[in-house]
C-alpha cells in the first residue's frame, strides 16, 4: 500500500458514498445510467471472485465486500425503489459493444489462460469503459445535477491516482501490471472532457452544462 493507491481507493469509496447519498436525499436516480451501474456490478463480481479463495489483507477484504455490496445495492435502488425516476429512453448506449470486445481482449491479453485470470482481465477492461453509458447520457442531456458531477469526478480521479501508484510500485517493488496500467490510463482518458468542464465550471460554483 502506498499513498497514491490509498488516495485512489478513498476516492473510489467517496464516489460510491456520494452516489448513494444522491439517490437517498433526492429520492431519485435521475441522471444516472442504470447500464453503467450494472456494468460495475459485473466488474466487481468478476474481479473479486478471489475473495473466496485468496486472502490479501483485511483492508482488501473489506473494500472488496463493500464494492460488491454497494454496487448491488445501487442497482437494487435504481431498479426497484426509485425505478420511476429512471428514464430508460435516454440510457441507450449499447453495452454489447463494450462487453463483447472486452471479453475478446480478455481472452487475448491475460496473465494466464485460466478462468479466474481471464475474468480478472475482463473486469479490468470492462471497468475502463463502464462509464461510457453514463457519459453518453450526460452528453445527450447536456447537463447534470451538481451532486452527480461530484460522483463522476471522484470516480474518475480514483483511477487517475492509480497511475502514480503504478509508477511508484515499479520503482520500489519492481511490480509492473501492463494490463491494469494500459486500461487505467485509457479509463482516465475517457474522463478528460468531463474533468475539463468539472474543474472550469462546477468547481467555480457554476452548473454543469455542456456547450450546445
Amino acid at each position: 500500500m502506498n499513498f497514491f493507491r490509498l488516495l485512489g481507493d478513498l476516492s473510489h469509496l467517496a464516489s460510491i458514498l456520494i452516489l448513494l447519498h444522491k439517490i437517498k436525499t433526492t429520492r431519485s436516480c435521475r441522471g444516472l445510467s442504470f447500464k453503467t451501474q450494472a456494468l460495475y456490478v459485473a466488474v466487481f463480481i468478476t474481479r473479486y471472485l478471489d475473495l473466496t479463495y485468496r486472502w490479501v489483507s483485511l483492508y482488501n477484504f473489506v473494500m472488496k465486500l463493500f464494492f460488491i455490496g454497494s454496487s448491488c445495492a445501487t442497482l437494487y435502488l435504481m431498479r426497484y425503489k426509485y425505478c420511476p425516476t429512471h428514464d430508460p429512453s435516454i440510457d441507450t448506449f449499447k453495452i454489447e459493444y463494450l462487453v463483447g470486445p472486452c471479453a475478446i481482449l480478455a481472452l487475448i491479453f491475460n496473465y494466464k489462460f485460466s478462468v479466474s485470470e481471464v475474468l480478472w482481465s475482463f473486469s479490468i477492461f470492462l471497468e475502463s469503459v463502464a462509464i461510457l453509458p453514463q457519459l453518453f447520457m450526460l452528453q445527450r442531456t447536456g447537463e447534470a445535477e451538481t451532486i452527480t458531477t461530484h460522483y463522476l469526478a471522484a470516480l474518475g480521479i480514483y483511477r487517475a491516482f492509480y497511475i502514480p501508484n503504478w509508477i511508484y510500485r515499479y520503482f520500489t517493488e519492481g511490480v509492473v501490471d501492463p494490463i491494469a496500467i494500459v486500461a487505467g490510463i485509457a479509463q482516465t482518458g475517457l474522463y478528460l472532457d468531463f474533468f475539463y468542464v468539472y474543474f472550469t465550471k462546477v468547481m467555480q460554483g457554476e452548473k454543469f452544462e455542456l456547450p450546445a
Binding site: 482488501n60 492509480y162 509492473v176 501490471d177 491494469a180
Partner: peptide, 10 residues
C-alpha cells in the same frame, strides 16, 4: 522478466 502479478490492488 515479469513477476507473477499478485492482484493485490482493488
Amino acid at each position: 522478466q515479469a513477476k507473477e502479478t499478485p492482484h493485490d490492488e482493488l
